[in-house]
């Protein structure tokens, strides 16, 4: 248990970070199943504290990329490293599912879901202790939903549901946070609130990858990856979201409109059913 106190220096649960390794590193990663290619030749690296928007049309492989990083899906080719380790050997990765993928009728309260973040640290046959409960309450307060802790999860608004999953990542003491379409189906104030929280996570030194459909929000994050099965652009958003690259990613799905204040770009923003979701 002592190890946990020195987590930042020592890595997760006593697994030391490889010295000098980037927080996230993908080397020529491809994912195929059946005859279908979900991702090909994806390579990039992120330093600790980076905040990356992963952007692309439906079926571009955004969810697949997050699942590969989460260790839930093994790449067909290439290598994935988180602080120099395989994702499966690293419990400080928090994965936040798409809201449309969650069974909201499941009989759990908000507090139960956030407590799930502690399970990896508890180990088998152990029950949560006072320290775990304290971290859960602190995480709930941090994202501003402490007053909703005893609610069944269906009774929350979309923005509050997303905050709940961010609280779970905090309770997990995650160093890498993966969010799949966290802004989908939220109204603008709720979307702004989530983006503010992500910026706060980053300031605590967490590395954040967020799959987004909303190009306007993605353009406000420090880094962006434009994806259409293969990477089309990676870097600061003003270099990535150029009309040529966007057209390459979205094809006919993109409309570029000249407005008095500059270019406006409309991506396909429907995302109820992501074609790259896995069985």
């Amino acid at each position: 248990m002592k190890l946990l106190a020195h987590r930042r220096a020592d890595g997760c649960r006593g697994v030391p970070h490889a010295p000098g390794a980037p927080a996230v590193e993908l080397r020529d990663v491809s994912v195929r199943w059946g005859g279908h290619t979900a991702l090909e030749h994806v390579s990039f690296a992120l330093a600790a504290g980076d905040l990356l928007a992963v952007v692309g049309p439906n079926g571009a492989g955004k969810s697949t990329l997050l699942k590969v990083l989460a260790g839930a899906l093994a790449p067909t080719a290439g290598e994935v490293r988180v602080y120099g380790h395989r994702p499966g050997g690293h419990i400080c990765i928090a994965y936040l599912p798409q809201r449309s993928q969650v069974d909201w009728g499941f009989p759990v309260t908000v507090r139960d879901v956030v407590m799930m973040g502690r399970i990896g640290r508890l180990g088998p046959l152990r029950r949560p202790r006072a320290g775990d409960r304290g971290r859960v309450e602190a995480a709930l307060a941090r994202v501003g939903i402490a007053h909703l802790a005893s609610r069944q999860i269906r009774e929350l608004s979309g923005g509050e549901q997303q905050r709940m999953f961010i609280a779970r990542a905090l309770a997990q003491e995650a160093e890498l946070v993966l969010l799949d379409e966290p802004l989908a189906g939220l109204d603008t104030p709720a979307q702004e609130g989530i983006l503010d929280l992500l910026a706060a996570l980053r300031e605590q030194g967490m590395t954040v990858l967020v799959a987004l459909h909303e190009l306007d929000f993605a353009a406000r994050l420090p880094k962006a990856l434009l994806l259409h099965r293969r990477p089309i652009g990676f870097g600061p958003p003003e270099e990535v979201f150029t009309p040529d690259r966007l057209r390459e990613a979205y094809g006919a799905g993109l409309r570029i409109i000249h407005t008095p204040t500059g270019l406006a770009m409309l991506g396909d923003s429907c995302c109820a059913k992501d074609a790259d979701g896995l069985r």
Binding site: A70, A94, Y95, V102, D103, F106, V108, I119, G120, L125
Partner: peptide, 22 residues
Amino acid sequence: VAFYKEFLVISFDPTFAATLRL
């Protein structure tokens, strides 16, 4: 009862369960 929390998290959110090395 013994594997209550493991069955819970695997049933509720399998991808998250995988990140916990369950």
